[in-house]
């Protein structure tokens, strides 16, 4: 019963996204889907491990630049490019993860933000020779067409990213339900007790760190392929909180949160930028408002209502309280 429900949820969500594509502009939909993948990693870190990372743009940039280097200097196949991007993120997080996951959660948040700024400088000023600094790398025309799903065509790209998002989403759902997901949650709540049970905090956190940041790198690589262009702007510190905002907007730790958050955030960004043009002012106050008043987020507040409405015909105890 329970299994059926979340499968229905995933199908319904992605069917809705597919249908929405008919009514909404394609660039917007692509943005939403990539953004939701971006936020999924962050959501996992915050919701399951209790690590708030302000450095996600850094991992996004790692993925994007790894992919861009491949497509700019070496090959032309976008699928390989995305794979290279994910591998890049994986390797970087494996390298720095052991140092980072030893930190207390407040230091973790700060060090990650510092990392994002450093990556920004790195791509903008230090490695100008290979990143071309603020001019960025342009490789849209180098990306080759592939049979079946041709990623150079936006509508094909949308189908591809939608499938990929569903896959990532199902993967996180699987993690949540596994013993490992329970361990993650346990490190968040009480790290000492978990060690008494014979689990190793360090490796649990490291794995979570690597998984989440590889997901972020995947989103970065998808941006690179979709835009055919990368620039240091990706790791800009002013965008450091974007994935955190999306996660909180959607509802921390909920499965649908990242998708709902990404839709709301991207939608607002489009509308607000056109209406008042002062996006920072709006998002800043929105963030403070959410933190003070509604820290469950959109999905977190909506879910209980929806659930009540959907299941009101059944008796409450058949659902099982968790």
């Amino acid at each position: 019963m329970n299994a059926l429900r979340w499968w229905w949820g995933i199908l319904l969500t992605f069917a809705l996204l597919g249908i929405a594509r008919v009514f909404l502009p394609l660039p917007f939909m692509n943005e939403v889907v990539i953004f939701s993948i971006y936020a999924m990693g962050c959501n996992f870190l915050i919701g399951r491990v209790g690590y708030i990372s302000f450095g996600q743009p850094a991992y996004l940039a790692f993925g994007a630049y790894a992919c861009a280097f491949y497509l700019f200097y070496f090959g032309t196949n976008p699928y390989v490019g995305i794979l290279v991007g994910v591998l890049g993120g994986l390797i970087v997080s494996l390298l720095i993860g052991p140092l980072f996951v030893r930190l207390r959660s407040d230091y973790f948040a700060m060090v990650n933000l510092a990392l994002a700024v450093i990556v920004f400088y790195l791509t903008q000023k230090v490695l100008v020779g290979i990143t071309h600094g603020d001019n960025g790398l342009w490789f849209l025309t180098r990306i080759s067409s592939t049979p079946l799903l041709d990623l150079t065509i936006p509508s094909h790209f949308f189908i591809f990213s939608l499938l990929l998002a569903a896959l990532v989403w199902a993967f996180y759902k699987y993690l949540d339900d596994s013993i490992y997901g329970a361990c993650c949650l346990a490190t968040k709540i009480n790290e000492n007790k978990l060690q008494f049970l014979g689990y190793h905090n360090f490796s649990i956190r490291l794995l979570a760190f690597v998984i989440a940041n590889s997901t972020t790198a995947l989103a970065g690589a998808m941006y690179a392929v979709y835009l055919g262009f990368v620039s240091p702007e990706m790791a800009s510190p002013s965008r450091a909180a974007d994935p955190v905002i999306v996660t909180i907007l959607g509802g921390v730790g909920t499965l649908f949160g990242p998708i709902v958050g990404a839709i709301a955030y991207t939608g607002m960004k489009d509308v607000i930028s056109k209406l008042i043009g002062n996006w920072e002012l709006f998002i800043g106050f929105l963030l403070v408002f959410i933190m003070l008043v509604a820290d469950k987020g959109i999905w977190g507040s909506l879910a209980p209502v929806l659930e009540k409405w959907l299941f009101r015909r059944k008796s409450p105890d058949s659902r099982g309280h968790d």
Binding site: M110, A241, E280, L281, G284, F285, M291
Partner: peptide, 14 residues
């Protein structure tokens, strides 16, 4: 930290 980041960004807007 999240809340104060919101204040910082909002303030930059102002």
């Amino acid at each position: 930290m999240i809340t104060s980041f919101g204040i910082l960004i909002g303030g930059i807007g102002i």
